[in-house]
Design a protein around this nucleic acid. Structure first.
Lengths: 222, 222
DNA sequence: CCATTTTCGTGAACGCCGTTTACCCTCGCA
DNA sequence: TGCGAGGGTAAACGGCGTTCACGAAAATGG
């Protein structure tokens, strides 16, 4: 006497989809991005590989879905860090968000490699949104008084056209510039640490990270 | 009447090795890191796949060899940039080297992804050596007078143990710190540009790169 | 100069992989 | 109650890395 709620079929389908994704993430963690295979997932779920095509159009489509989920995970982790310090100054909160980004990435090197190690995703924008929200609070309290980089305003407007088209001009252009610059620094140090590209030089990247973070955040405060 | 010079066999063998590598690089450029396959290489060379095992122990060994070659290519490109401006101030030359790194990487996105997009190589050290040489000239003329980051000297010495073990203490520890920090910034902005992770924000990364480079180099000058 | 050993290649095979196709069973619904 | 759609299977194709047995050809040395 199964309850014939409208959408029971859809519920089972959604459960199978998440099971597939979970199996894929297990494979990802265990063996890196290249270890994700439809046949291995099917084995995990007690199915055959062609059955997965009822849920995803191809392996690439599945991986794209996983990358999207991972960006949402990361965004949530960073947003949680902001929420956990909601009584602090906005720029202090940004620091905690950056640390959350680093921690999340170090704990998930395989996922990080899948997300950032190759040219796929456009989900980076949605991720930046999280930082923009907190930065907005700072500039609402302390209007931007710094100086622009050595670029005239029209050139900057042309330069940031993709950003302006998506987010509008919520911030002064120099602020966007500073944010992107800060984001590249944060990415650089975290990616090099996650990929082990600094092990030839240092044992622990955290002190470097903290000093650079402090410098970068203070630059945002101008 | 083939000249039986000692090492004729070795010469043919070396030629085959470079042919294999060249075919692999063609596949890499055409289809990315995942497109490198022994069977495709063998087809290109008019051989069968098992024959390649006379030259490389496995596909991974071949890829490792290619990565090593690529780092040497990159190192040479950067060293050339330094040589082409040998009459300039050392820190100006470092700027040209950084631009050469960016240009080389943007022109070879597939190679860049293979080298830096996943945790393999230890060749980064040899690559950093190139920068150290030019930096050494600067600090020979202008002894370091800046301030250390907020870390006591013993802690820094412990932190940079891997570097010290390989390169010795040619530079004051704060200089090493500044170099690694500069390297993470350079890597961050170039990697994000190569991987397209900034396209959601800006059309052209070069202005950002130039401003950040100027700031980073001036920091090295303290 | 001939015999021997080393080197370099092939072809077949194994077990992976993504993907397509034809088919079948079993729900959910009219 | 009948039926159509959804969700599964088995078989097959081509591609992959890798191993193995085997043969030809070239270098070696007595």
């Amino acid at each position: 006497m199964t309850t014939t709620t409208p959408g029971r079929r859809e519920r089972l389908r959604a459960e199978t989809v998440t099971e597939i994704k979970h199996a894929a993430r297990r494979l990802l963690v265990a063996g890196g991005p290249a270890a994700i295979s439809l046949r291995a997932i099917a084995r995990d779920l007690g199915m055959t590989a062609p059955a997965l095509y009822r849920y995803f159009a191809s392996l690439d489509a599945l991986i794209l879905a996983i990358v999207t989920d991972l960006f949402e995970d990361l965004r949530a982790a960073v947003a949680d860090a902001a929420l956990a310090h909601s009584d602090e100054e906005p720029l202090v909160r940004v620091g905690h968000m950056a640390r959350a980004f680093r921690r999340w990435s170090l704990d998930r090197p395989a996922e990080f490699a899948l997300m950032f190690g190759s040219p796929i995703n456009d989900a980076g924008a949605r991720f930046g949104e999280t930082f923009f929200t907190v930065l907005g609070e700072h500039y609402a309290r302390h209007p931007f008084g710094g100086e622009a980089p050595d670029l005239p305003d029209p050139a900057l407007r042309e330069l940031f056209k993709p950003y302006l088209d998506t987010f509008g001009d919520r911030f002064p252009l120099p602020v966007i510039y500073l944010f992107v610059a800060a984001w590249t620094r944060l990415y650089g140090i975290v990616a090099m640490e996650v990929f082990g590209h600094l092990r030839w030089a240092m044992t622990d990247v955290e002190p470097l990270f903290e000093v650079e973070l402090a410098r970068t955040v203070s630059r945002l405060a101008r």
